[in-house]
């Protein structure tokens, strides 16, 4: 049984300009002890999908799914009270901005102990001991002293370590890390990633790593889901993905990695992720895709087979060549 099993997840926001679909039919499976990475540009709905899983979306959001199960519990039918017992305990999340994610009015110690006391019912002394242990675990020097520090007295890296300590407080089965290193210095980024991967290895928890950094994916993840404009466009093991991306978007993302650049100029994907008003017909990626045909512009593509990474494409790539593409058919014949 998978730890997290999500089928056909859709999230819609009510906005002044009508409904906006931020996540569109996403399937996600995370196994125990697995590191899954969700990759995509800003606006691809990767954070929203995970916030929906945690039940943290604002009231303007409507979440629907065929199946949404965590550790054998059905998240869709469960009451809010029951869900709160899981969230923060078995399923925890850390965020992109560590400096603003901690409450400025309370000490770090208070915020860590709060989780312990609320979920595990630890008394003052036990909570304190566990908090010190957690602070040590995430590599914070002088944990005793740091516990009585306020968030504004700490650096970004330190704050993120505290957030991790908080998330790990109840030994969760699943940790969702939403771009945990984006707001940090490059040197700190590597430290935090190492810390996360190390903690994951030690505890055997599942880890969902949301990122837009392919470098981070390559270093940490085992399996990768690529999202574009709220849709899941590809899903593969990390090694296979880097060797042979099946969706043109994935290929373009990889080509945009600076270390893979062949010319003097950094390659980029022209255009931006479509927003609410400018969603194209057919394939959502067609305005930015170099293989797009009239067919792509009219017909919504189906998911390809699993050996093609379930690529959401009419002409999934095989070793860089779009299969079944008219132009390439001619070349082949």
């Amino acid at each position: 049984m998978s730890l997290l099993d999500i089928r056909n997840l859709t999230v819609e926001f009510r906005t002044a300009q009508g409904p906006f679909r931020a996540v569109d039919g996403v399937d996600l499976v995370v196994d125990q002890g697995e590191i899954l990475s969700i990759v995509g540009e800003s606006g691809s709905g990767k954070s929203v999908a995970m916030l929906a899983t945690m039940g943290l979306l604002p009231w303007t959001a409507t979440v629907t799914a065929d199946r949404m199960a965590f550790d054998g519990h059905d998240l869709l039918t469960m009451s809010r009270r029951e869900r709160r017992r899981i969230v923060g305990r078995d399923m925890a999340m850390i965020f992109q901005e560590p400096m603003t994610s901690l409450n400025p009015c309370f000490t770090v110690g208070f915020q860590i102990k709060e989780t312990l006391r609320y979920h595990l019912g630890l008394d003052r002394k036990a909570a304190h001991e566990r908090a010190v242990e957690l602070m040590r675990q995430v590599g914070i020097p002088e944990p005793e002293r740091r516990l009585s520090a306020f968030p504004h007295q700490m650096s970004g890296g330190m704050s993120q370590r505290c957030m991790i300590a908080m998330a790990l407080a109840c030994k969760p089965k699943l940790l969702i890390a939403d771009e945990p290193t984006t707001a940090l210095d490059v040197t700190i980024q590597a430290q935090i990633l190492d810390l996360l991967v190390g903690l994951q290895r030690d505890s055997g928890m599942g880890l969902v790593l949301i990122t837009h950094d392919m470098g981070v994916v390559a270093e940490t993840a085992e399996r990768v889901v690529v999202q574009y404009a709220g849709q899941q466009v590809e899903q593969q093991d990390v090694k296979a993905l880097f060797e042979d991306p099946h969706h043109p978007y994935t290929a373009a993302l990889l080509a945009a990695l600076p270390e893979r650049a062949t010319s003097k100029e950094l390659p980029s994907i022209p255009g931006v992720v479509p927003g609410q008003g400018d969603r194209p017909t057919g394939c959502l990626f067609n305005p930015r895709c170099r293989f797009a045909t009239d067919h792509c512009r009219k017909v919504v593509p189906p998911h390809a087979s699993s050996e093609m990474g379930r690529a959401l494409c009419h002409y999934p790539l095989r070793h860089g060549v779009p299969t079944g593409h008219p132009a390439h058919m001619e070349a082949a014949s």
């Binding site: 039940g55 943290l56 969230v87 923060g88 925890a92 965020f95 409450n103 400025p104 009015c105 609320y118």
Partner: peptide, 24 residues
């Protein structure tokens, strides 16, 4: 963000609004 963090801890609304948000 810190209100979202408080919710992510699984705290009841009463505590999120009455303590974490109100204090600020």
């Amino acid at each position: 963000d810190y209100v979202r963090t408080a919710r992510a801890k699984g705290l009841p609304s009463r505590r999120v609004v009455g303590l974490h948000a109100l204090r600020n």
